[in-house]
C-alpha cells in the first residue's frame, strides 16, 4: 500500500469512527456535557481553595480549565478503546485484519479520529468557560491548550486501544477510563504541588502528565508562554503516545499470532 492509499484508508476509518457521534441520536451529548459539568461543579465546590496561602492564582476556574480540557480528551480517547473492544467482540475488526491494509493504518484511523473528536467537548467547555469569566489565555496559550487536547486524545485512544486489543472485551472499559482518569488527576490538577498531600505530591512529581497540565495551564493563569514551560509537556504527550502506540501495535500483532 503506498502513502496515498494509506492516507485514503485512514480517512475512511476516521469517517466510520465519527459515525458513532453523528448517527447515534444523543450519543455525543454526555461526552460533550460531562467535562463542562465537572468544570462547573469542581470550581463551585473547591473554589475557596485559592484562599489558601501558597495558591498564587485568584481564579480557581482559570486554574482548573486546562485539567478539565484534558479530562474531556481523555474520556473521548477512552471511548475509542471501548468502541474498538466492541468491534473486536462483534467480529468487525476481523474484517479489517483480513484486509491488506498495514496494521499501523488500522490503528491510525481510530486514534486520529479520537484526536479530532476531543476538540468537540473542548470547544463547548471553552465557550462556557470564557462566558463565565475564565481568563483569556492569548492565542498562543489557546493554541497550545488545543494541541495538548488533541495530543491527550491520541494518548488516551492508544491506551484504550492497547487494552482493547489485549483483552478483546468491553469489560476492560473501566480499566481504560480509570487509567486515564488517574493519569490526569494524579497531578497538580486540583492545587499547586506544595498544597497537595504528601503522597500525591510524590506521585505528581513522577507523573509525566503533571508536565502536560502545567504546560497547558501557562496562558490561563496569566503566565507568559515559555518554551521552558512548554517542551516538557509536549515531550510527555509524545512519549506517552509513542509508548501506547507501541503497546497497541504489539497487541494487534499478538491477536493474529
Amino acid at each position: 500500500m503506498n502513502a496515498r492509499q494509506s492516507f485514503e484508508a485512514i480517512r475512511a476509518l476516521m469517517r466510520r469512527a465519527i459515525n458513532e457521534l453523528t448517527r447515534v441520536p444523543g450519543a455525543a451529548i454526555p461526552g460533550v456535557l460531562a467535562p463542562t459539568i465537572f468544570f462547573l461543579g469542581l470550581t463551585s465546590v473547591f473554589g475557596s481553595l485559592t484562599l489558601l496561602p501558597g495558591f498564587d492564582t485568584t481564579s480557581y476556574q482559570s486554574f482548573l480549565i486546562p485539567v478539565t480540557l484534558m479530562q474531556g480528551a481523555a474520556f473521548t480517547g477512552a471511548a475509542t478503546g471501548v468502541n474498538l473492544a466492541r468491534d473486536i467482540e462483534h467480529g468487525w475488526f476481523d474484517r479489517l485484519l483480513a484486509s491488506p491494509a498495514p496494521r499501523p493504518v488500522l490503528l491510525a484511523g481510530l486514534v486520529l479520529s479520537a484526536s479530532f473528536r476531543a476538540l468537540i467537548p473542548a470547544t463547548f467547555l471553552l465557550i462556557v468557560a470564557f462566558a463565565i469569566g475564565v481568563e483569556w489565555p492569548g492565542f498562543g496559550g489557546l493554541a497550545l491548550a488545543l494541541v495538548i487536547v488533541m495530543g491527550m486524545g491520541i494518548v488516551a485512544a492508544t491506551w484504550g486501544a492497547s487494552l482493547a486489543l489485549r483483552f478483546k472485551t468491553q469489560s476492560a472499559a473501566p480499566l481504560m477510563q480509570a487509567g486515564m482518569f488517574l493519569a490526569v488527576l494524579l497531578t497538580t490538577a486540583y492545587a499547586p504541588l506544595e498544597l497537595l498531600q504528601g503522597w500525591l505530591q510524590d506521585i505528581a512529581r513522577l507523573n509525566p502528565v503533571t508536565q502536560v497540565v502545567e504546560a497547558a495551564r501557562q496562558g490561563f493563569i496569566g503566565e507568559d508562554i515559555t518554551w521552558a514551560g512548554t517542551w516538557p509537556g509536549l515531550l510527555a504527550v509524545a512519549g506517552l503516545a509513542a509508548l501506547f502506540t507501541f503497546m497497541a501495535l504489539r497487541a494487534m500483532g499478538k491477536m493474529t499470532a
Binding site: L185, A191, L196
Partner: peptide
C-alpha cells in the same frame, strides 16, 4: 461494578490528596 466502587474510590483518593489543604 466500576462506577459503584472503583470510580468513587479513585475520586475519593484524588480529592483527598488534591484538595486536602482545605
Amino acid at each position: 461494578a466500576a462506577p459503584l466502587i472503583i470510580f468513587p474510590t479513585l475520586l475519593l483518593a484524588i480529592q483527598t490528596g488534591g484538595a486536602g489543604g482545605a
